[in-house]
Design a protein around this nucleic acid. Structure first.
Lengths: 252, 252
DNA sequence: CGACACGTTGAGATATATCAAACGTGGTGG
DNA sequence: CCACCACGTTTGATATATCTCAACGTGTCG
């Protein structure tokens, strides 16, 4: 599989041309497989290349004093996991795999070469890092304004939409081989409480999360519980099985 | 006052040269004053220019279904409030003033002109938007892992450090003309609980927040309660009155 | 088969929210 | 200059969501 096939797939901003995609592809110097739950980068390390996720799931996280981690980003195939490390040079967080993963590496020198000659391309890469920032903001909304059920539902709805955009969800379910503890580190809850929320969702026939798979029984209700409005993902309108709320509701 | 004087002041990344600063200054087409609590931009609006905050405080926020807002970013003088609107074109959140504010406007056409001819400068602007993303991530940590006292303390410690970098805090106190309700919308708490936390901080002689002013009695304790580690701000080492934790503690 | 990681459940503790009311205080109009 | 109003702050009593601790269940893999 080409590494860059999924990058910015079905996004409304920063759409890459075939030429740009090919150039990025050529800049890949290394492809490899990472085991599950492996740390790729520690907070504070200097970077000389960036990582494209081709298959599997990765996270970015920050630890507190007791070593409990807060996951601040969740990555799906096609995500340029640490492209922001190119302009920033040092990262303020760590990066790890959640599942076994396949990655491709692009040296910063190559990115420099590509962007020095092509302002438009540089602007697209810039925009792609801002999509991550947009997702950060929605996560802030999630943690600051939603209760436990809303947070879990929001993550499941968001992941459904993102996976839909890359062909890994048809809107009725998707594979998600992560633990309830991972989910708790994403949602700022305890794994025990996540478990109770999941039971409630199962009993209420909203969705199930069992043996590494999410089955969505009632997408509309899931997204309502989550107050999910996919605007922030900048996805093409027809992508994914997302019902989405009538925009007026949220904007009203 | 020159609009761009404070932009990226005392940051370790994306430091601007005098020439770059002057060019940005020349790109300013408009300066004006905004009243307190005025909305500058609504989520979803298309943008043709970006806003530099010169004086006062502004926020970016997302509303939930009941119209309660979650503040996702807090801006101090010298911040390019919506530079990310240049590559993104449409924003996923709203922007408003908290206090009376003074702003300068830079048209996107001018930004295009400046960056088309200067790749290095473009990369710096890119990096500056990534500093915001870094702050978003720390806020996720704050909401996901800290209790009420920690969250309030974290915001006060962060603001102390950021204001220190632009000469508006000497580490013992600073002006912060916002309400406890604003604070609650930043920290994801109720204003009543924020009030109780503030009382505790006052009684414990950590800091006071009264009549629009923060007085820090014990910065080290404030930062410990907040688990505050300013790495994510990418500030010059000697700036601000921040004590900061020994890095080893947090990284361990 | 046993070990280990992950999931599930219950009982009780605790942090934070909610509801209600009183208290400043600065600004405005009479 | 006073009276009043609006807004923000403060406090108390009570409700509730989530956490903590502890135990038990279940599937997978060596």
């Amino acid at each position: 599989m080409k590494s860059m096939n999924l990058f910015l797939r079905n996004r409304t901003v920063a759409k890459l041309s075939d030429v740009e995609r090919a150039r990025l592809e050529q800049a890949v110097t290394d492809r490899r497989r990472l085991p599950a739950r492996a740390t790729l980068l520690e907070r504070g390390e200097a970077l000389s290349h960036s990582t494209m996720l081709i298959a599997g799931f990765m996270i970015r996280y920050i630890d507190d004093l007791e070593g409990r981690r807060q996951i601040v980003a969740f990555h799906v195939p096609g995500d340029f996991v640490d492209l922001h490390g190119y302009p920033l040079k040092v990262l303020d967080h760590s990066i790890a795999t959640l599942t076994q993963a396949q990655i491709a590496t692009v040296p910063h020198a190559a990115l420099k070469r590509l962007t020095d000659n092509d302002v438009e391309f540089a602007r697209k890469l810039w925009a792609s890092t801002l999509l991550d920032a947009s997702t950060h903001r929605e996560w802030l909304f999630r943690l600051g304004r939603l209760d436990a059920a809303g947070r879990v539902a929001h993550f499941l709805a968001e992941t459904n939409a993102r996976l839909g955009a890359i062909g890994l969800s048809d809107g009725t379910g998707y594979d998600l081989p992560i633990t309830q503890t991972d989910l708790s580190e994403i949602t700022g809850l305890t794994s025990i409480h996540v478990n109770r929320v999941l039971r409630m969702m199962r009993e209420e026939r909203v969705c199930t999360f069992r043996s590494s798979r999410v089955e969505i029984a009632d997408l509309e209700r899931l997204e309502r519980i989550a107050q999910f409005d996919p605007t922030y993902l900048y996805l093409e309108a027809d992508v994914a099985g997302t019902q989405s709320l009538d925009k007026e509701i949220r904007h009203g």
